[in-house]
Amino acid sequence: MPEAYRKTLIRQIAQHAHSEIIGMQPEGNWISRAPSLRRKAILLAKVQDEAGHGLYLYAAAETLGVSRDQLLEQLHTRKQKYSSIFNYPTLTWADVGAIGWLVDGAAITNQVPLTRCSYGPYARAMVRICKEESFHQRQGFEALLTLTRGTPAQKAMAQDALDRWWYPSLAMFGPPDTGEQVSGGHTEQSMRWGIKRFSNDELRQRFVDMTVPQSEVLGLTIPDPDLRWNAERGHYDFTPPDYDELFRVIKGDGPCNAQRLAHRVAAHTDGAWVREAAAAYAAKRRAETEAA
């Protein structure tokens, strides 16, 4: 396996795994505040899925000869990144619905092509993840639909969540394919290697085309005055996200970057005694078995 291919895959799979793990936080914030037992059980299952997705992906990365400890170390020291979307706060219950509908919807758009990428362990992890993400997206849509069919205040809450999550969701597809930001990107090489199969702008357009009709079912307004169907192109025209903001958030200057990472490091540090106790218990049992 070419070394550059291996390195690129480790970087991408690790970033993906870290995103799943950090992505538990914005929604975990609402588990204890969910409006009903049904919603709470659903949210618990979803956050547990995110942990599972992180584990599938760490295992896929480890097949490339990097250890779990190294991967976590790189996350905790900010040498590897996670998706910038998780550095935005979840201010209301409607944000949980918006994350499922938009953020998981964008993730699915990104991830479905990866189920056919050139590296088998990554592709197989993505098959499993995409199946489970479908539940995530539908539960989010249903939660928002419940709000938009509720009181005027509930509908306003849903609209406010869409207003705040729309552009960060568009930014999840990364920088545009053209312009000065493209020079430092990995797209061209990754497409040659079969790791990436569609460009950022192609996937972003696909997401917008899918999502606009869904917003109409919800009765919500996408916060883009220039959004309109372009019959000539057969696609919606839309305002791109603020890429300068995207780069600021990636560099660490988002609303929640420090909080997210501090929480992750604290969870890891606070859990050390559990990992050590389990290993000590296993060693003791092994010694007893060997002595007997």
């Binding site: 547990q48 599972g52 584990l55 599938y56 295992a59 480890e62 779990r68 197989r124 992890a125 990992r275 389990a278 290993a279 218990y281 296993a282 049992r285 092994r286």
Partner: peptide
């Protein structure tokens, strides 16, 4: 797939959850 666990019994339980 694969996973990390301290011993076989925990590996089975973790495999169930993952």
């Amino acid at each position: 797939g694969s996973l990390h666990a301290p011993d076989a019994a925990m590996a089975v339980r973790n495999a169930r959850d993952v």
